[in-house]
Nucleic acid binder design. Structure first.
Lengths: 244, 244
DNA sequence: CATCGACACTGCCGCAGATCAGCCCACCGT
DNA sequence: ACGGTGGGCTGATCTGCGGCAGTGTCGATG
């Protein structure tokens, strides 16, 4: 593998499919047209139809659904190297909204360019489809958490999952990571109230497991947290690449 | 459209993409190798790797996740015309289990045959990918329900969604449908206890909205139920076909 | 400097929903 | 006729979590 891997996307896909220099350069060329958004901006609105895909280069984003009664459920957060709106391109309208959490940089990729890249470099297509399947697996895992995990397990599992995802793109370790999320965002994602999130975080901190504070997550006792959350990261990572 | 549409899958896809007789016959030829399973059989086990896709022809199936602590979260139910394990074929291992709810008939389609059919009839590929995106949208909607809807809304929404899906394949109307699910299965899907499901069902029945009894769902007041659940079916159906 | 808004944090109370325990009925197999 | 089983139904009790209301802190802005 190339030692000068630049984009988080290339780093992530490289864990699933060993990419040649030629494939890597196709991937990098997709990401030339950069575009910034300020924090808190709505990138895609629920119900809007959309013919382009975005690749998140830097910053954090959340995709969420607004229920008719006004309540908000965050479906997932996206971090550098993730696609935005990949699925919505097939449906005529997006079933969810996407909003920047921090200031971000995205690359807008017209669906046509993406399909052309797939046609020319099929291994890249496999890698991207793998990433899409992984995203769906995360949503399913999230669903199981909302339905069947108690609040502390749910929070712990969420923080661990984010940590594992960030580690894969080089933004975190088993020691911890920088996390720009507010407790309100956590609440909207985990189906709890912000107040209760606060209580649970304190509890986890007092147990000496994790410290979520000042935009930083510190794993005080990684093993203990994994045990509490029953965290099994096999759905996020591959022990061996899919294609070598 | 052909008047002698046979399989539920063809009927469903026909709502999204107008299929020619030639495309329909390709679709029907995929479904020749039928295979029965008895009720309560595990078709795919969580963690198992799998190189074939199934198309459900008759009967009901559920896909679920078992958490390490033994709790079960049903991700979705599949009804005739739905794919089983379409996503898992890309991941090396399935992240969920699949089990028959009733006696069923499935068609086992080797991934190779499916891909060949896609290559020969690209409109079919589009239709199937559309169906996959719709499945994912249902999971997202389900996620929002678990996170943000109270028990009565959740149950009502679930029954309405099932009704709309069944109507699309000809197994139900706005009046009601046959539903082989037990209250235990509902509980595992909706993140509630079976006891509480029972109470909520009674409540909805006493309000004159739905009657869930003896394997049958009767919509006593469809409009009222829609209002209670804030049900918006646009994510399930298209007002106009994607390709004509 | 005062003010204001965003975010974190806390105690108290009420409620939705879990858990426990038990009953009824229909359908089995012997 | 019998017990066993699986599903539906119910009441009593307990509890996790949300709602509310209020405090504290920091950073931005006049």
């Amino acid at each position: 593998m190339d030692t000068t891997v630049t984009s988080p996307l290339a780093r992530k896909l490289g864990c699933f499919v060993a990419l040649s220099d030629a494939e890597l350069s196709v991937l990098e060329r997709l990401q030339v047209r950069r575009r910034p958004f300020a924090a808190g901006r709505e990138i895609v609105h629920q119900g809007q139809s959309d013919r382009a895909v975005y690749i998140l280069v830097s910053g954090w984003v959340c995709s969420y659904k607004t229920l008719p009664d006004g309540a908000r459920q965050i479906v997932d957060f996206q971090i550098p190297g993730d696609f935005l709106g990949l699925r919505s391109t097939l449906l005529q309208t997006s079933d969810h909204s996407i909003e920047s959490v921090t200031d971000i940089q995205v690359c807008e990729v017209p669906s046509g360019d993406l399909l052309a890249a797939f046609a020319g470099t099929p291994r890249l297509a496999t890698a991207v489809l793998w990433a899409a399947s992984r995203d769906e697996a995360m949503v399913v895992e999230h669903l199981a958490g909302l339905g069947r995990r108690a609040a502390p397990q749910r929070v712990a599992h969420f923080l661990l999952e984010l940590g594992a995802r960030l580690a894969l793109v080089g933004f975190g370790t088993k020691a911890g990571y920088a996390c720009p999320l507010t407790q309100y965002l956590l609440a909207d994602a985990l189906g709890l109230s912000a107040v209760h999130i606060n209580r649970v975080l304190r509890q986890l901190r007092e147990l000496g497991l994790v410290t979520f504070r000042d935009g930083t997550v510190v794993f005080d006792d990684y093993g203990g947290l994994v045990a509490l959350a029953d965290f099994d990261p096999t759905y996020l990572d591959q022990e061996r690449p899919l294609l070598t």
